[in-house]
């Protein structure tokens, strides 16, 4: 019963429709496609990084708990060039906790003990307050819970510690579990929106 003309007409129409639909999709999306494909934390949205909310008790630890990897792909990173190298580092010590006999806080803040503290330079052995310290984050321990980021944040600290996606670990899930549960939509695909921010909004200049 197939009329060859009619069949060919349908074929041709369908084919053209498909081509136009695909082309249209390509044009619409190609215009604003970005070259990279990665998840990133938008600093001005992340409650742990952005200014305003302070104190490790306010921390949001979705990045630590929700990643599909056994140890989250989000890690804290200390930018040594911006670190104040403080003796009583609120990101290293639990400053609200009890004091030890040496006048320094007795407990550490990091629940996984992932921050390594080393006195650097010409070390004064008698006065710990007269020394500079290097704080390095042990990647194998850090799970990106963000407590240290909250404590080091401006204005209390210098904001040298940030949460970053470690791209050597991130498997770049299309349905990122952290992004699903991020309360502020701070965990986004890198893209042309929003415009790049050089500094944190409201930061000290």
């Amino acid at each position: 019963m197939n009329d060859p003309d009619r069949r060919q007409f349908l074929q041709r129409t369908g084919r053209t429709t498909c081509a136009v639909a695909l082309g249209g999709t390509g044009i619409v999306l190609g215009r604003r496609a970005c070259s990279e494909d990665a998840w990133a934390i938008v600093p001005n949205k992340c409650v742990n990084i952005r200014l305003g909310v302070t104190g490790s008790e306010q921390v949001c630890d979705v990045c630590a708990t929700d990643c599909v990897l056994p140890l989250s792909a989000v890690r804290a990173v200390n930018d040594h060039a911006e670190c104040g190298r403080c003796c009583i580092c609120p990101a290293y010590y639990d400053v609200r906790g009890p004091m030890g006999p040496d006048g320094l806080p007795a407990k550490k803040l990091c629940p996984r003990d992932a921050i390594v503290r080393t006195p650097i330079g010409e070390v004064d052995p008698y006065d710990p307050l007269n020394n500079f310290y290097e704080y390095t984050i042990d990647e194998s321990k850090c799970n990106g819970c963000g407590r240290c980021v909250m404590e080091c944040k401006d204005p209390a600290g210098l904001g040298s510690i940030r949460l970053e996606v470690r791209y050597d670990l991130c498997v770049c899930c299309n349905q990122c579990s952290i992004a699903q549960h991020c309360p502020e939509e701070a965990y986004c695909r890198i893209g042309p929106q929003p415009a790049p921010a050089r500094t944190l909004e409201g930061g000290h200049v």
């Binding site: 604003r32 990279e36 600093p43 060039a81 670190c83 904001g159 415009a195 921010a197 500094t199 200049v205």
Partner: peptide, 16 residues
Amino acid sequence: LPVRGQEEYSRPVTAA
């Protein structure tokens, strides 16, 4: 037409 867009985060610290 790909646009490169990376949220930059730099703190103007001169005190460190």
